[in-house]
Design a protein around this nucleic acid. Sequence first.
DNA 1: TATGAATGAGCCTTCATTCAT
DNA 2: TATGAATGAAGGCTCATTCAT
Lengths: 222, 222, 222, 222
Amino acid sequence: MKLTRKERERIARRELIIDATENLIDRLGIDNITMDTIATEAEVGKGTLYLHFKSKKSIYLAISERGSRLLNHAFGKALLKELPGLKLIEELGRTYLKFVQENPVYFTVFNYYESLINDDDLAQSELAQRCEESAREAMTYIVRALQIGMQDGSINNKYDPHELGIVIWGASRGVIHMAFHKQKKHHMKILDDVNFSLQSLVSNFIELIGTGMANDQQSKNN
Amino acid sequence: MKLTRKERERIARRELIIDATENLIDRLGIDNITMDTIATEAEVGKGTLYLHFKSKKSIYLAISERGSRLLNHAFGKALLKELPGLKLIEELGRTYLKFVQENPVYFTVFNYYESLINDDDLAQSELAQRCEESAREAMTYIVRALQIGMQDGSINNKYDPHELGIVIWGASRGVIHMAFHKQKKHHMKILDDVNFSLQSLVSNFIELIGTGMANDQQSKNN
Amino acid sequence: MKLTRKERERIARRELIIDATENLIDRLGIDNITMDTIATEAEVGKGTLYLHFKSKKSIYLAISERGSRLLNHAFGKALLKELPGLKLIEELGRTYLKFVQENPVYFTVFNYYESLINDDDLAQSELAQRCEESAREAMTYIVRALQIGMQDGSINNKYDPHELGIVIWGASRGVIHMAFHKQKKHHMKILDDVNFSLQSLVSNFIELIGTGMANDQQSKNN
Amino acid sequence: MKLTRKERERIARRELIIDATENLIDRLGIDNITMDTIATEAEVGKGTLYLHFKSKKSIYLAISERGSRLLNHAFGKALLKELPGLKLIEELGRTYLKFVQENPVYFTVFNYYESLINDDDLAQSELAQRCEESAREAMTYIVRALQIGMQDGSINNKYDPHELGIVIWGASRGVIHMAFHKQKKHHMKILDDVNFSLQSLVSNFIELIGTGMANDQQSKNN
DNA sequence: TATGAATGAGCCTTCATTCAT
DNA sequence: TATGAATGAAGGCTCATTCAT
C-alpha cells in the first residue's frame, strides 16, 4: 500500500486546504468564509480548490468526515477499557466532551452537516457516504456500550439499546451545544444567570442519564 | 392602553409579514427565502418590509420571539397542574414535544437563533432583548418545576436546579432535534437503522431523565 | 391604450439597455461583451440588467426581436408597391440588403439566433415566441410575393412557393453574409481576389435568381 | 520525402487530437467542448494538446483545414466529369450537399471560421494561410466550371465568373445552412410550416440558379 | 406610510493556458 | 516529448438594502 510521491503530494494538498478552512472557520465563523478566503489562507490558487473539491460544501463535508474519523478513533479507544457498560457510557460522554473542547471546529461543522447533505449531488458523493458510515459507526459504539451494560447488569434492560443510543446521542449533542455556546460568549442570557462550566454541566448530564439508565440493584451500591 | 386605528393597523401589518415568512419557511426552508419572496407572499411591497423590520434577520428574530412567547404560554399552563415536581418536568417535556410537532417552524428558527444574535446590531435591539427574556422565562419554568420537585421530595436535591435546568433544556432540544430530522426525511443513515417514532423517542428520553433525577431509595444511598 | 408614466419609464429603460448592447456589439463584437460592459455602457447598475432581462442571452434575443420587427416593417412597405411579383421579390431583396447595410448589428445577432434558442428556458419565453413569429412573418412576405408572381405570370409556377421562399431566404442570407464579411474586412482571401461591392454582388444575385424563377416567356424578353 | 518514425508519430498524434475533437463536436456541440474533454477523448495529457496546437481555436482551425481539403478533393473529382459547364455547376452543388450531409462537423466548423480568424495571432499562422488557400481553391473550382460553361455556351456570359462564383458559393452555404437546421431540429418555426427535405431544397436551389445562369437558348429547351 | 426600481458588492464556478517534473 | 496540477482572470448571476416618488 505504498503511495507514489504524486499521490502523497495530492493528499497533502488536499489536507492543506482542509486545514486552512478549519482555521478560517475557527477565526471567522463558518458563515463568513468564501472560496477566495480559503484560497488565500491555503496559499493556493482559487482554481486549485476546485481541483480537489467539487464545491465549497464539499470542503465542509471533508472536514466533517475528518472530524467523524477522529471522534470515532477516540470512541474506539474509550470502549477498550475494562469497565462495566454503564461506566463505558460515561466514558464515552467524557470522550465526546473532551473531543468537542479540543476540536470546536468539528462541532461547528457537525451542526452544519444537515444543510450539506441537503445538496442532492453531494449527498450521493463517496465522501457523503463515508460521513454517513462514520456517523453510523459512532452510533454503534454507544449501542455496544449499552449492550455490554445490559449484559453485565449495570444498565437497565428495559430500553431498546438502539433507541436509547439515539436518545443519548441526541441529548449529549444538545447539552454540549448549549454549554458550548456559553463558552463562546455567543450571547444568551439564560446561560449567564447561572455560573457553570461546560465541565460541570456535562458531568451533571452524565450523572443524570447514568442514574436514569442504571439497573436498580447496581445504582443502590453506587 | 387603547390603540389608535393606525397603531392597530401597523401591528397587523407586522404580523402579516411574520405570518408570510413562517409559511415560507415551512414551504421552502429557511435557506431559500429572499426578501422578494416574503414581500410577494405577504402581498406587500418590498420596501414595506423595511418599514417594519430593520433587516431580514430581524424578521427571523421576530418569529423567534413569537415562538418563545407561545412556548412560554404552553409552559405556563403546564405548570399550573397540581402535580409533584417530577411529574411537572415530564409534563413540560411532553408540552415541548407537542409544541415542536405543531409548530415545526419555530423549532427551525430557534436553531437559527444563534446566527441571528451574532449580528451585533441586532443583538442590542429591543427585539433581541425580548427574545432573551423569553428564553430566560422558559428556563425559569423548568427551574421552578425542579424546585417544586426538590421541595416535595420527588426530585433528588443533589443537583443545582439551575444547572439541572440547563441540562434538561439542552438535552431535550438535542433529542427532539434528532427525532425531528428523521421525520423530515433529511437523510441520515444512523436514523434509518432503528425504527422509532418521535413520540417514543421522547417518551424514552423523559423516562430516562425522569428516573435519573427522581428521588428514591436507590438514589438516597448515593 | 395609454401607458402610465411608470410603464413608459420601464420600457424606456429596457430600450436603453438594448441600445447600449447594440452599440457594444457594433464596437466590440458580440463575443467580447460582458454584463459588466453592458451595465457600464448603459450607465446602469449590473443588477438592473437582470431586472429587465432574465439573462445575457435574453438581451440578445430582445435585439433579435427588435431587428425582426424593423425588417418586417420594411418588407411590409416594399410589398405595398404596385409591381409584378417577380419585381416584388427583387424589391424585397434590395430591401433586405439595405436593411443589413444600415443595421449591421441585427444581421450579426440574427446569425447568433440559433445559439440563443438552444437555451431551453429561453426558447419557451414569450420573447422567443415573438421572434419566431417575426421570422414566420418575414417568410410570409416572401411567399406572398411569390404567389403574386405566379398569379400574374411573372414567376414560374413550377415551384412550390413555400419551398422556394425558403430557398430564397436562405440563399439571400448566405450571399449577404459573404458580402458582409468582405466589407467588414474580416480577412478572407477568396473575397480579395475579386473586386466587387456588396451592392453589385447582391444585384447579381437578384438577377440570377430573378431569371431563374422567371416564367420563360418573361425571361426571354428580359 | 521520407518521414522519420518520430515525424510520422508526431503527425499521427496530431491527427488523433483532431479526430477526437471532431467526435466531440458531433456529440456535444462546438460550444460545449473544453480542452479537458479533448484531452480525455484523445487519451492524451492536456499539456500535450499544446505541444501540437497553439490554442484551442487552432485545433478548430485545423479541423477547418482538413474539411476544406476533403471538400476540395471532392470538388476536384466532380470537375473531372465530361459535362457542359452548367451541368458541372450542378454537379458541384450536389457534391457540396453530399459532403455536408456526410460530414456535418465540417459544416459546423466552417460556420465557426470567422470567429477563428478574428484572432489576430491565429490569422497569421501558417495554418490559417492554408485554410485561406483551400477556400480560394474551392472558389476556383466553381469559377472554372463557370468559365467552362461560358465557353461552351451553357452558361450566360453576361456575369463576371468570379463574382458569380461568390454569389453561388454564398447562396449555397445559406441554403444548406437553413436546410441543415431543420434537420437538426434546432427549433425554428418557419421551417416547420413547410415540409421539405434537405434534398429537395437543394435540388430546387440548383434548378433555380441553374436556370438563372443558363444561356437563353438552353433555358428555353429546359 | 407604501412602493418597487435600482443598486453593486459579493459569490461560486469555469477553463484556457502555463510550467515544473 | 508528455504530463496534469496549478493558476487566476473572467464571467454570470443573486439579493439585502436603499431611496426617489
